[in-house]
Amino acid sequence: MSVVELVGVTTRFGRLLVHDHIDLSVHKGDLLALVGGSGEGKTTLLRHIAGLSAPTTGEVKLFGERYDEGSYHVRRLRRQRFGMLFQHGALFSALTVYDNVAFPLRELGGLHEDEVHALVMSRLALVELDPHTAWQMPAQLSGGMVKRAALARALALEPELLLLDEPTAGLDPDRSAGFVRLVRNLHDSLGLTVVFVTHDVDSLLALANRVAVMADRRILACDTPEEIMCLDHAFIDTFFRSLRQRDEPITPWMH
C-alpha cells in the first residue's frame, strides 16, 4: 500500500514550471532518497506531500487520502502521522530546544510532563545532542546542532512517515553516519517510511533502498541505488562521479 502517491503533479510559480507531470509512489517501509540539482523542486515536492502547498494540477495523496479530505479532526490526526524536517530547521525561535522537541508531544495531549521529559531527553540523545543543549535557544546553536534539534522535533512522535529535507547537510561525517544508523534503527523497529532529500552520496547509499532522480522537471527514474547508478544521464554521472573516482588513487594537485 502506498504511503505517498503523486499523480500528474504539475507546479508553476508564475511562469516558472517546476514540476511537469510527476508521478511517484512511496510504499510502506521505503527509504526513498530524492536527489536532483539545486532548484529542481525537491523542497517544493516535499511541501506538496506534507500538504503545506498544493500543486497547480495533479493529485497528492498521503496515507491514501488527499490533504484536504475529511473533517478537521481527521486532517489533524493525519498530520500527526508524519514528521517533517525543514531544510533550514524552522525551529521555533522563541522556545528552548527542549520546548521545541516537547511541542508536538504536548500538542498531542494526554502525556504527563515527566513522560514528556523522558521522551524529549531520549530524542536529544538519539540525535547526539548534549543534554545541556536542551535549555538553549535555537539562536545559540551551531548550524549542525540546529539540524539535529530539528530532526529531534521531527522524530518526537516517532511518526510513520518522515519527510526530511537535507538531513545530513551541515553534519560532520561522523554525525552523518550516526544519522544513518538512527534512521535504520527506527526503520527496522518501527517500520518507518522515510522520504529524504539529499546531496550526500554516502548517506544515500548507506540508507536508501530506492532513489528518485529529479531532472528536467520530471522524475527521471525511481529505482534501487544500484540500478540508478547504471543509468546514463548527465546528472547521475556527475552525482555519483565522486564515488567512482574514489576507487582510483587520489592524486594531489600540488606537486
Binding site: 523522558a118 531527553m121 531520549s122 536529544l124 540523545a125 543534554p131 527496522d188 523497529s189 518501527l190
Partner: peptide
C-alpha cells in the same frame, strides 16, 4: 531497540 532508546536517560 525501543527500550534501548529510553533505558539510559541522559538528563540535565
Amino acid at each position: 531497540h525501543a527500550f534501548e532508546r529510553i533505558e539510559h536517560p541522559a538528563d540535565a
